[in-house]
Design a protein around this nucleic acid. Structure first.
Length: 562
DNA sequence: CTGGGGACGGGGCCC
DNA sequence: GGGGCCCCGTCCCCA
């Protein structure tokens, strides 16, 4: 049959519109967001693909990093929110363009981010308003984030310095407000987030205005970003150069791409002995670490359940967490009703290194292991709008409020009774025909021994009931979900530490080489590299090691049969 | 190519 | 909540 061409075009347009609408909705929920944009103290979650498709600038950055800091001289959080809205909707709201000043700011940001369409729109708007883009908006090119593509445009007349003083409420002096632009943004986030507002993309309720808008808890991402480094480590740089992709220039990666300028130390803040190393590779670092350090969202391949050496009598496997509920912890892990965009099926597979603790976060044949029961019909976890998943029963809910209300209905006894009923009905998971279910349960279909092995700790149980009872001890002990990847943790502190790794926050800096670490202990360990101290000696061969774990590894070499 | 060593990241857990 | 430590695991370099 004849098909009208115009109809086809109309359908295509609708398709694009629907697609964009879906993407924007996903952004609002954080669903499948795989990159975090840091603008001053604000975090924006977005999709790499969308950013890359909209901006040459982002296109050059997102392949390398999950965390991108923007130059606050070029774009403010409020402006970037408008930019992001434009990217995801293709339009500017009327409120966004009422004032010429805001349009001018948008134009600056659009030029900086190489959003040509938005820049053109802003120029037209200014022109329609009887203005010409100010001379300050004449743009010149600057080095690209990675040196391969045309660089972001920048204001030729704008002194490229640190964040204007009005952005910082914690220091009275301008000097104190000036920070290294290339490295400072993350630090600002880290140091100030607990006190200042954070807004996440899609969380319209949060305002950056100090005077208005609802404040989002500083733990917007479920972690305490206010973590401060110990003495000397509140350095002017906040992202380890080693965390940058090796192929990238120093302008790339999780840093503001603005070329470095004056890097004045903040008040009450020690300057690194060698600030020039902000721009140059750190010589003492023998091995520039691969990109994986800063981008662990895609971490994969850690073996599970290898040689678990559980300390005898160590709690955690048998003990239940304070009785019967997990609700409070779940709630604490969330940001707000719209923030938790964890995709239960997406990123969980990357987590697998569980060490001697039990390894509950690992991957099982591609299935997540923190949903211990098959989701019930209509409540598929992490799919559609049901992003909030009840850990004990696997039900998904469209909002945290509904999830919390649901979880409140759970009690240990109820869960137990529910399972008993299933067993009595013969509908236990062992009867499930899906081989994946067997795999996820540690029960190999057709395998004789062991038939009832816990996939978390490898403990074998005499029957399915015992196995399930045992497995409950695992999920009841993991009430702290990561808001980014959904992985569960036994302790809040572990979860927040994990979250820092997502954001690449490394508060502890080595004064010798600038290498940064997520933990102070790591820094102390690292310092032995510089001092040459090797406190760990092999009693068999006299070999000395800077790290105990390397001694242990060495000892295994001695003990393993040759 | 392989094994050993160096360095480091992540998670569990105790204090 | 954070520090400290343990363990597992990985990556890289080098002989």
């Amino acid at each position: 049959m004849f098909v009208n061409q115009s109809v086809c075009e109309m359908e295509q347009q609708n398709h694009f519109k629907q697609l964009l609408l879906q993407l924007n909705q996903q952004r609002a929920k954080g669903y499948l967001c795989d990159v975090i944009i840091v603008v001053e103290n604000a975090l924006f979650r977005a999709h790499k693909n969308v950013l890359a498709a909209s901006s040459v600038y982002f296109k050059s950055l997102v392949p390398h990093d999950n965390l991108i800091n923007l130059d606050t001289e070029m774009v403010s959080p409020s402006v970037f929110r408008q930019v992001l809205d434009f990217i995801y909707t293709g339009r500017l709201s009327s409120s966004d363009s009422v004032s010429d000043h805001s349009v001018s700011s948008l134009l600056t940001a659009a030029s900086y981010l190489q959003l040509t369409e938005l820049a053109a729109l802003c120029r037209r708007k200014l022109k329609n308003n009887g203005q010409t883009p100010s001379s300050s908006n004449k743009l010149t090119t600057s080095p690209t984030p990675n040196g391969h593509t045309p660089g972001p445009l920048r204001l030729s007349s704008t002194p490229l310095r640190a964040t204007p003083s009005h952005h910082n409420n914690h220091s009275g002096s301008r000097k104190g407000n000036l920070r290294n632009q290339r490295w400072g943004q993350e630090g600002r986030l880290r140091e100030d987030l607990s006190e200042e507002e954070v807004f996440i993309s899609g969380s319209r309720c949060a305002s950056l205005s100090p005077s208005g808008g609802s404040r989002v808890n500083g733990l917007a991402l479920g972690l305490d970003l206010s973590k401060r480094s110990p003495s000397g480590s509140t350095a002017t740089e906040e992202v380890s150069p080693s965390s940058l992709p090796q192929s990238s220039s120093p302008h790339s990666s999780s840093v503001s791409p603005t070329p470095p300028t004056t890097a004045e130390p903040r008040e009450n803040q020690r300057q690194l002995p060698n600030t020039s190393t902000d721009l140059l590779p750190r010589a003492p670092c023998k091995r520039p670490r691969s990109h994986r350090e800063a981008t662990n969202l895609g971490e994969t391949g850690k073996a599970l359940h290898k040689g678990l050496v559980k300390k005898p009598g160590a709690p955690g496997h048998e003990k239940l967490v304070r009785g019967d509920r997990v609700t409070p912890e779940l709630e604490d892990g969330e940001v707000d009703g719209e923030e938790n965009g964890q995709d239960q099926s997406e990123e969980s597979g990357h987590s697998g290194s569980e060490g001697g603790g039990g390894g509950a976060g690992g991957k099982r044949n591609g299935n997540t292991n923190y949903i211990y029961r098959q989701p019930q019909p209509g409540f598929e976890p992490g799919v559609g709008d049901n992003l909030y998943v009840c850990i004990p029963c696997g039900k998904g809910f469209p909002s945290s409020e509904q999830l919390n209300a649901h979880v409140d209905t759970h009690t240990q006894d109820e869960i137990y009774l529910e399972e008993e009923e299933e067993e009595e009905e013969g509908g236990g998971y062992l009867k499930d025909e899906d081989p994946d279910i067997y795999a996820s349960r540690g029960v190999e279909p057709g395998a004789d021994e062991p038939r009832h092995r816990c996939t978390v700790c490898s403990k074998t149980c005499k029957d399915a009931v015992s196995l399930r009872e045992h497995e409950k001890s695992h999920w009841l002990n993991r009430p702290f979900p990561c808001n980014i990847c959904g992985k569960l943790f036994t302790q809040r502190g572990t979860m927040t530490r994990h979250m820092r790794s997502h954001l690449g926050l490394k508060p502890f800096a080595c004064e010798e080489c600038g290498m940064r670490f997520t933990r102070q202990y790591r820094l102390a360990e690292h310092m032995r590299v510089h001092s040459g101290e090797k406190p760990y000696e092999c009693q068999l061969c006299g070999g000395k090691f800077t790290q105990q774990r390397n001694l242990l590894s060495h000892l295994k070499m001695h003990t393993s049969p040759s």
